[in-house]
Design a protein around this nucleic acid. Structure first.
Length: 718
DNA sequence: AAAACGCCGGTTTTT
DNA sequence: CCGGCGTTTT
């Protein structure tokens, strides 16, 4: 049994061609992960390369994780020495040990998007700049662009055609960067940019890593930005054993700085590049593949390719025009039900893909009503929730007292009488006397703060110092300690509102994360925990084994596959998005088109395209014409239908919804024991309203308290 | 300092 | 239709 078994000739060649630069153009579903993993196995077993000399880089943790799992099966114990990671975590790891060279300390924290916004707002306020004119969002985007292009504030300043506005932006960027450094904090883009700068400034450090990574593999190369490109280039310079895999048709992150030129001109960049094309698709039927090809064919500037599959024919793509987004959602429910009745399928075989996260709600609502299990990826992220961010901010200042953004966040959360005025005094006094805010907190009177508030501040500082003493203990223990000692928990418990309940549930959820971490990590410090969390996105937690259907954005779906895929919102202004339509750069429409290609090629067996005749956006009704991408699919691959008339529709829904007939709904009262068909036995802890509209809160032993509407809830008294 | 109110503005995709 | 933000009130 050889590593080359079960690989087609092109794949075999890609696996065996180990020396020198190699560009693998891998079409959708052509088995690129398979090639990458087998190539690594080949390097280890046939070429006798030490696993520690191999670096494999992906974009998402999900991809890295999958690759690690497959490698474990393929090469066993040797996989432990492999370095398989995302760009960001690779750089994080390098910086944790090397960042002293750049004047930061290794306990730096990572600022996420909202931390960045906060810091930018702070700066605008200090500079007395109008945040209407200088929208924080715009500024952070601009800064991000600079960083993705490896432009420091100094370099940006030197650009020839900067106008006044640009100059202002660059001034803010400059201050922003100084503040990050003072706070001992890095934003996402810094992880990459600073690593590259470090390599450029310290050749000896670069050399160390060049020596280490004799073989480098990069997945999704079409999504690399300038900074990532340079990182790879520097690392590969010495041994030049660089293998990149990508598909220009799946480049969907140019808005985030990805430069498609990186893949289009790879062969000019690296001398004696070998190019291998993987054109056999193992995922989709011919029909789906052809339709996707017809769409993407309308783009210029493509590498020529012709994907083919052995799965001839297949179902046509079904195109449904719904009345509105509610009808669209019910079409999905109806269709899933039908298929589940007729075929051997499970919930997890279905995915609903949306252009924007705003479309999720209507779909979720109908799935809830219909009792279809689902999971949502993207949208409001777990770690973005207020209560989670609060507890993480506590962690951050414990790990790194210099972090003013987190300090500002929690110094008065929960309320302890330290308002904006006192905060400003602390900041100003510190700035004037060259002390950190945290230092000034030891003697707030010096900053002219009233005794009462001063006492409160000192109390808070003592609290944090106390937590810091405990920072070596379990994260779970520390979390509980913070929640209790700060009064955070109590405040929420006393509130007795729906929102507070949800927050408490989320904190409970967070504690399961910390417990898991405590078991898996051996004595890693708080900084490690924090940065691990900040690099994780919800999509990384996607569990393909759970029998629930999936709702996600088209972007989030890249790299995944499902038997049946709904691509929703096929309307002009939504998909392609109005922003790209209104842009004067035609490339933006092309990117939407590639996104359409990605969405279609997620499907193995069947695609449903849906569009809504009328869609409510921000309370206003929008009537959008069908997406141009629909027109680009030839009729022979399509069959279509429209929403029924109102009368038909309501009677149909009546059946489809299988809503309980009036009178069948039980009345629940406090203390009733009930049985839920998924969560088991529980006790009613509160009832709001009456009849089938009643909102019943039930405490389940393992699930915590769940709110249920009796009309829809699958519960009965026991 | 904190809560309560009312206004404007804005909405793509994410490591 | 939300949420964030500034203004007013307690």
């Amino acid at each position: 049994m050889s590593i080359l078994d079960n690989l087609n000739p092109e794949q075999q060649e890609a696996v065996q061609c180990t020396e020198g630069p190699l560009l693998i153009l891998a079409g959708a579903g052509s088995g690129k992960t398979r090639v990458l993993t087998h190539r690594i196995a080949h390097l280890i077993f046939e070429k006798k390369v030490y696993p520690g000399n191999i670096l494999a880089i992906t974009f998402t943790n999900k991809a890295a994780q999958e690759m690690r799992e497959r490698l474990e099966k393929l090469v066993g114990i040797a996989s432990q020495h492999l370095w398989v990671a995302t760009f960001h975590s690779t750089c994080l790891r390098i910086l944790r040990s090397e960042i002293k060279e750049l004047g930061y300390t290794s306990n730096f924290v990572i600022y996420d998007d909202s931390d960045q916004q906060t810091l930018i707002k702070m700066i605008l306020k200090e500079k007395n700049l109008d945040d209407k004119k200088y929208a924080p969002r715009t500024i952070s985007n601009r800064i991000s662009n600079y960083k993705n292009e490896l432009k420091t504030p100094d370099a940006a300043q030197k650009e020839p055609d900067n106008n006044y506005f640009d100059d202002q932006i660059i001034n803010i960027y400059d201050e922003y960067q100084k503040r990050l450094k003072n706070n001992n904090a890095l934003d996402f883009d810094d992880l990459i940019m600073l690593t590259v700068l470090l390599f450029k400034e310290k050749p000896d450090i670069l050399q160390k890593y060049q020596e280490r990574f004799k073989y480098i593999l990069v997945d999704e190369y079409q999504d690399t930005n300038t900074a990532q490109y340079m990182l790879i280039k520097l690392l590969a310079q010495k041994h030049k054993n660089l293998c990149v895999v990508g598909d220009d048709d799946q480049s969907i992150y140019q808005w985030r700085g990805a430069d498609i030129k990186n893949i289009l001109s790879f062969e000019e960049d690296y001398e004696e590049t070998k190019i291998i094309k993987l054109e056999q698709n193992y995922r989709s039927t011919q029909n789906i593949l052809s339709a996707a090809n017809e769409v993407v064919k309308n783009n210029s500037r493509r590498k020529p390719k012709s994907l083919w599959t052995e799965k001839e024919g297949g179902d046509k793509i079904f195109y449904y025009t719904a009345q509105d987004e509610v009808d669209e959602a019910f079409f999905i429910v109806r269709t899933i039900r039908q298929i589940l009745d007729r075929e051997q399928k499970e919930y997890k075989d279905f995915a609903v893909l949306c252009r924007t996260t705003g479309q999720f709600r209507a779909i979720e609502e109908s799935l809830i009503r219909s009792n279809i299990p689902y999971r949502v990826f993207g949208g409001t992220k777990f770690y973005d929730r207020k209560e989670i961010k609060d507890i993480l901010a506590y962690f951050k200042i414990i790990a790194n007292p210099l972090d003013e953004v987190s300090l500002k966040r929690v110094i008065n959360t929960p309320k302890r009488g330290i308002g904006d005025t006192s905060w400003d005094k602390l900041v100003n006094y510190g700035a004037l006397n060259g002390k950190t805010i945290y230092d000034v907190m030891a003697e707030p009177e010096e900053a002219g703060i009233a005794t009462k508030t001063a006492k409160s501040i000192k109390g808070f500082k003592k609290l944090i110092d106390n937590f810091r003493e405990l920072s070596k203990s379990d994260i779970t223990f520390l979390t509980n300690k913070i929640l209790e000692d700060t009064g955070y928990l109590q405040e929420l418990q006393l509130e007795k509102t729906v929102e507070a309940e949800t927050r408490l549930e989320n904190l409970q959820e967070f504690l399961t994360v910390t417990k898991k971490y405590d078991i898996e990590s051996q004595g890693d410090d708080l900084s490690t925990f924090l940065s691990e969390i900040s690099l994780v996105t919800d999509i990384d937690n996607y569990d393909a084994d759970e029998d629930a259907m999936v709702i996600m954005t088209m972007h989030g779906a890249k790299g995944l596959e499902f038997p049946i895929v709904f691509v929703t919102g096929m309307e002009e202004n939504l998909f392609p998005h109005s922003r790209s339509i209104n842009s004067n750069d035609p490339e933006e429409i092309d990117e939407e088109r590639r996104l359409c290609y990605v969405a279609l090629t997620r499907a193995e067996e069947k695609v449903y395209l849906t569009r809504a005749w009328k869609r409510t956006i921000y309370g206003r009704d929008a009537y959008n014409s069908p997406s141009r991408f629909i027109e680009e699919i030839p009729d022979k691959y399509l069959e279509s239908s429209q929403a029924r008339t109102r009368e038909e529709k309501s009677s149909f829904y009546g059946k489809a919804l299988n809503s309980p007939t009036p009178g069948s709904v039980e009345t629940f009262s406090l203390g009733d024991k009930v049985e839920h068909n998924k969560w088991g036995e529980g006790v009613v802890v509160s009832v709001k309203g009456s009849g089938d509209d009643a909102e019943v809160s039930v405490a389940f032993p393992d699930q915590g308290i769940k709110k249920l509407i009796s009309r829809y809830a699958p519960i009965k008294k026991v």
